[in-house]
Design a protein around this nucleic acid. Structure first.
Lengths: 154, 154
DNA sequence: GGTTTTGGTTATATTTCATAACTAAAACCG
DNA sequence: CGGTTTTAGTTATGAAATATAACCAAAACC
């Protein structure tokens, strides 16, 4: 009788088949690549994507309640606590007392936070430039931005 | 003197500022939305995105070594073990002996695995249809696929 | 035939993300 | 007013994804 479970592997590249036409799969791969690039660019600033987005949101909405910022970024309130702890410990952001509601934290950037964010915005602009180059032009990058915004409302 | 740390929150919506022009941030949000949609569509099939992609890769490359499939999907070999354990326990895929190399597992789908994958491909096609609708047409979806593929080579 | 390398596995640490429960302060309401 | 309910922030905790080191058996090397 033939050995029932023996199979010989094919040679050459593994083909992903229809996966490379699947938006969800490609989104995951693209996000990994872009975040790895982010990691390299922001290494010197010691900022994660989450921290960077928090700094931007706080600067854009000074005095807003912590939970508002967290919700806008799509992060659970309990998880945002540690994020803010880190920013505060490094002196980049602070939790002020809200005048109206003594339970609430009114978030704001410190001077050091604004300065670091300025440098971060520079690094971010460089990433967008790299993306523009990879995609073949600013028109393509803009189209991607628009398309991704639509997708997130799926 | 004025109370130094009191700040009143602005009303209205939190603005994300330049974040909604940042590809990395938008990629993250879009991926979350698409994966949540995936979760709803594949709930009945009880398949995660990782499991789905593994089934596709195995069917596309029957007999290939486990580590080749894992590498092609970008998943670490140790982490692929548990994924395969799950598929095998459910009778969807199997680890056959490689004829050439007795260390290697030659992966293959079972009949049940092929049947489930058939249904999964249907659900997947429906997701692409929904995406096409959200983006305004197949041309837009195609462009997105092409753009994401470029991004993952950043 | 002994050494080195490789495929799969185990164990483990880290990170991310979600949920329940607690406190203090506010809002509500008869 | 005073009691109940809701809300902001926090703590504790768990689940899931991801990465690393170490091991065994089989192969490749020389």
């Amino acid at each position: 009788m033939s050995a029932p479970e023996a199979l010989d592997a094919a040679a050459g590249e593994v083909r992903l088949g229809m996966l490379d036409g699947v938006v969800g799969y490609l989104l995951r791969r693209a996000q990994i690549a872009v975040f790895e690039d982010f990691g390299r660019r922001f290494q010197a600033l010691d900022l994660t994507p989450a921290q960077f987005s928090a700094l931007v949101a706080i600067q854009e909405n000074p005095g807003r309640r912590q939970s508002d910022i967290a919700a806008a970024l799509g992060v659970q309130r309990p998880n945002f606590v540690a994020l803010m702890d880190g920013l505060e410990r490094r002196g980049l952001a602070e939790r002020l007392r809200s005048g109206a509601d003594r339970r609430a934290n009114a978030l704001a950037l410190t001077r050091a936070g604004r300065e670091l964010l300025d440098r971060a915005l520079g690094a971010q602009a460089e990433q967008e430039t790299a993306i523009r180059a990879a995609l073949g032009g600013e028109a393509e990058r803009r189209r991607l931005v628009e398309t991704l915004a639509r997708l997130s409302r799926l």
